[in-house]
Amino acid sequence: MRVVFAGTPEFAAVALDALLAAGFTVPLVLTQPDRPAGRGMKLQASAVKQRAVDAGIPVAQPQGLKLDGKYATDAAAAREALLAADADVMVVAAYGLILPQWVLDLPRRGCLNIHASLLPRWRGAAPIHRAIEAGDAETGITIMQMDAGLDTGDMLLVGREAIRADDTTAVLHDRLAAMGGTLIVQALQAASLTRTPQPAEGITYAHKIEKAESRIDWAQTSLEIECRLRAFDPFPGCVTEFDGEAIKVWRAQIVAGQGEPGLVLGRGADGPIVACGQGALQLTELQRAGGKRGPAAAFLQARPIQVGERFDA
């Protein structure tokens, strides 16, 4: 079976590794163009491109795929590469470009998507983040037959994964990436798969994470804030202000307490206790601007926080 692969970040690279390990022929990889990254803002290849280059697989990096759009020249070149690849199927994982109908129609078995949620919950760009943020008890991987809609295609395989009380997006991402690789290999090796339309009920959208969302609203409940801290780890993190300084809060524990939102209620050995709209949080991992994230106890040695002071004051 000839499998064209389209994906960009590490989540997708894990699936590409699984396909290659299972012995599938991958004649072509599509991935996003190299982007500036790091302190020097040098162009950096995506995780998928790095894997493809290491494996000697040709790579196409169109900026767009609409044949009549702004990047029509790129799209035409990608079309020629896809035709030459003569694919039985295309596997798509976190690619970052919407596939127009001409792409969906090209492979003989169509296009299969590895989506990191239990569809139809959390269609869209950030399903792992949003599942943790919402306090969901479980999530998973859906292998989907792609159509022209946004994550609306028929489901082929579903794997379920519990969301643990201490899961961050980084930790859950790795478990789901491994599951995605396993399930896509199973889907391609199966003699036949039942196509199940997605339910019409329970549809939610995992909108892209915006940096503006990172500011902590102490009027929220302790549970809501704690879930968001884990959802936004490692990106973009959650920020609050203390004595005019921007502080990132990475970890916190829900504790008993009540007071004006943002008020410091106490100082435990593991960090300050801060009132929320309902309940309280003990902040256990903090980061000052320009510093490294670390235990709140070390933060308190450098900058004591007193009972009665306020965050976001």
Score class of each variant (00 low, 15 high):
192 S>K: 06
246 A>G: 00
309 E>R: 00
264 V>F: 03
298 A>Y: 01
260 E>L: 08
238 C>M: 15
291 G>D: 13
259 G>K: 08
247 I>F: 02
262 G>R: 03
198 Q>L: 07
287 Q>S: 01
225 I>Q: 04
218 W>G: 01
199 P>N: 04
283 L>D: 02
299 F>V: 10
220 Q>Y: 06
306 Q>E: 15
215 R>F: 15
232 F>V: 04
278 Q>H: 12
257 G>W: 06
247 I>P: 01
299 F>M: 02
206 A>M: 08
196 T>K: 13
196 T>M: 14
264 V>D: 03
209 I>N: 13
184 I>L: 05
275 A>I: 14
181 G>I: 05
293 R>E: 00
217 D>H: 08
194 T>F: 10
200 A>N: 15
183 L>S: 03
204 T>H: 02
205 Y>D: 12
262 G>D: 05
242 F>G: 03
289 A>K: 08
278 Q>V: 03
300 L>V: 14
207 H>K: 14
276 C>T: 01
260 E>I: 14
265 L>M: 13
276 C>N: 00
253 Q>C: 03
279 G>N: 07
227 C>G: 13
213 E>H: 12
298 A>P: 01
267 R>W: 04
255 V>W: 05
290 G>Y: 14
243 D>K: 09
195 R>F: 06
271 G>L: 11
283 L>F: 08
194 T>W: 05
307 V>Y: 02
276 C>H: 00
234 P>D: 06
245 E>L: 09
308 G>K: 05
239 V>A: 10
274 V>N: 02
297 A>D: 09
281 L>S: 05
259 G>M: 11
280 A>Q: 07
291 G>W: 11
269 A>P: 01
284 T>E: 04
204 T>V: 13
303 R>D: 06
218 W>F: 06
272 P>T: 15
296 A>L: 00
200 A>I: 14
268 G>I: 05
218 W>P: 01
255 V>N: 04
189 Q>M: 06
202 G>T: 07
211 K>W: 11
187 A>P: 02
222 S>D: 07
251 R>V: 05
181 G>Q: 04
213 E>F: 06
216 I>W: 08
256 A>W: 07
183 L>T: 11
268 G>C: 00
190 A>S: 12
232 F>C: 07
239 V>G: 02
281 L>Q: 06
224 E>S: 10
204 T>G: 11
291 G>K: 10
280 A>M: 00
265 L>A: 10
276 C>F: 09
274 V>S: 02
271 G>E: 07
306 Q>A: 15
